[in-house]
C-alpha cells in the first residue's frame, strides 16, 4: 500500500461512508446523501450543507472527482446545466482500501483477545 494513502488514516466516519458510497459507481449529491444514510444504518444523516462541505474537502484532496452526468453510462442530456456526479479517483480508492485494511486489523486484534478471554 502506498505510504501516501496510509498517511491519511484514520478517516472520519463521514468521509469513510462517502468514499464507500462512491466505491461501486459515481453518484449525484442526493444519491450520496441517501446511500450514506442507508450504509450507516441512519447513524450518519448529512444535511445538504455538511454533505457539500465534505464533498468539497474530498475534491480538494483529490480523492473524488466531479463529472457531468452526461458522461455517465445510461444518462441522457436534459435541458439546462448538466447535473454533476461524483466519482472516486484512484487515490481515493487507495485511501479507502487502506482504511478498510486498518479496520480489519483492529477487528482481528479485538477478536483474538475476546476469544482468548472466553476460553
Amino acid at each position: 500500500m502506498p505510504a501516501l494513502a496510509e498517511n491519511e488514516l484514520p478517516l472520519t466516519e463521514a468521509t469513510y461512508f462517502i468514499l464507500l458510497s462512491l466505491a461501486d459507481e459515481p453518484r449525484h449529491g442526493y444519491a450520496i446523501l441517501k446511500d450514506v444514510e442507508a450504509l450507516s444504518q441512519a447513524r450518519i444523516v448529512f444535511s445538504t450543507g455538511t454533505l457539500y462541505g465534505a464533498l468539497k474537502r474530498l475534491l480538494d484532496t483529490g480523492w473524488i472527482e466531479r463529472l457531468d452526468d452526461t458522461a455517465l453510462p445510461g444518462s441522457e442530456p436534459g435541458p439546462g446545466r448538466p447535473r454533476k456526479a461524483y466519482a472516486l479517483t484512484q487515490l481515493g480508492r487507495r485511501v479507502l482500501a487502506a482504511e478498510v485494511a486498518r479496520l480489519r486489523t483492529l477487528v482481528k486484534a479485538a477478536r483474538r483477545r475476546l476469544i482468548q478471554e472466553a476460553t
Partner: peptide, 30 residues
C-alpha cells in the same frame, strides 16, 4: 446543486412527516 438536493430532501420530509426536524437540521447544517 445544493438547492436541488435541498428541494428533494424537503419534499421527502413532507411525505415522511419529519418536516420540522429536517428543516431545522438543514438550516443548522447550512
Amino acid at each position: 446543486e445544493m438547492g436541488q438536493v435541498l428541494s428533494r430532501v424537503l419534499s421527502d420530509a413532507e411525505s415522511s412527516g419529519h418536516w420540522w426536524r429536517t428543516g431545522a437540521r438543514e438550516l443548522g447544517g447550512a
